[in-house]
Design a protein around this nucleic acid. Sequence first.
DNA 1: AATAAATGTTAGATTAATCTAACATTTTAA
DNA 2: TTAAAATGTTAGATTAATCTAACATTTATT
Lengths: 217, 217
Amino acid sequence: MGSLTEENYIKTIYNLSLEPGEVSVSELAKKLSVKLPTVTSMIKKLSVKKMVSYAPYQGIKMTEKGKKEALSIIRKHRLAELFLVKILKLGWEEVHEIAEQLEHVNSDRFYNRIDELLGFPKADPHGEPIPDVNGKVVSQKSIPLSQANVGSSVKISAVTNDEKLFLDHLNSKGLQIGDQITVKKKEEFDGSVSIINKSRKETMLSHQVVEKIWVEL
Amino acid sequence: MGSLTEENYIKTIYNLSLEPGEVSVSELAKKLSVKLPTVTSMIKKLSVKKMVSYAPYQGIKMTEKGKKEALSIIRKHRLAELFLVKILKLGWEEVHEIAEQLEHVNSDRFYNRIDELLGFPKADPHGEPIPDVNGKVVSQKSIPLSQANVGSSVKISAVTNDEKLFLDHLNSKGLQIGDQITVKKKEEFDGSVSIINKSRKETMLSHQVVEKIWVEL
DNA sequence: AATAAATGTTAGATTAATCTAACATTTTAA
DNA sequence: TTAAAATGTTAGATTAATCTAACATTTATT
């Protein structure tokens, strides 16, 4: 983990990288309210630390290592925002500033408990997705399989449980992340769902299971 | 508000000042894990800012301004610890480190909500008293008047409510902080308490009132 | 294509917080 | 009561993050 300043650069670079086009030194300087040479020198430092890849006059690109770090900070920021709104009953407009401070708290225990207290939420109060402990982000357009319409064909984008037992269960049903599946039938009385998997076989998934499988339309 | 480093110096100086004897440069250096000259130079800086008073080779003394700042940080630290234990269910042994980070969060709204969420607690998980918003500390040996024994003579050490209405009420009963009073009778059915005030007059105080008056034995 | 505008880099200074080495004062104790 | 030990200060160096001024490269525009 780097300094507070480094964390702010990494988070900002990551956010800019999601927008179309290269991440430029001037964009970064503007976002961080510093002058251009300040950015150049910090980028060199982050480059030595392998958080970004950089060659003079070319744009700034994040490495996998940098992305991982960025997602960890963003996770903390968004969990903090949701916590401030849901638990401390602060307004969603006023929480950003406080979350900017809380995102630098270094304690996995702290953030995992907040995650738990909030029921492992998928999005912050602004609807932005919250990366999980491993930096996995459930796309904003994803929904739990339990909410997919009968007849729709969807792609498994994520599972919100990493337990071996759960993953083994999915394997035994012939399911994997990335698979395209079709929703055949939804049982009202117990919330179970019948689907057709990649191998065109029909299987039944319980309510507990379809709640934990997230899909993209 | 000063830098994070300044806040740590101020908090540490305050804590050392509660122990008997002068606060020395070497004590501070040891507590903060820095060398002596580092302390000397920071003390000079804090002295310019009127947080401490200092003359070379004499000890370090806190000013009122410094104490106020220290109590604000300590309040945040202790609220954070209690929050971590009570709400996030972390162990009391592990919360100190996280609280060291949270105490630097700059947001009154944040801490006042936590205070509220915890029910305006008087002590942290270690039994250390939590200063209120105004830096007032209820001594560890204080108890609410509602818990004092009949026949005991006690001194009013604090009131946990600053509303004019409440303070006017106390005035009308001839009560002030610092007054020595005697508990005459406690009514079981409504929690009211009869006391004898400084002027040897007997008065009845309701449950709501005796809950908010803290006394020392 | 030549040049002006925009963008990026280098060099060197500044500030906060730290350090080491050398010196000064105060306290302890022989 | 003076020498040794402990404690504190000053001077000057270092590192992180920032700045301004000067220079370099890239992009846009006539």
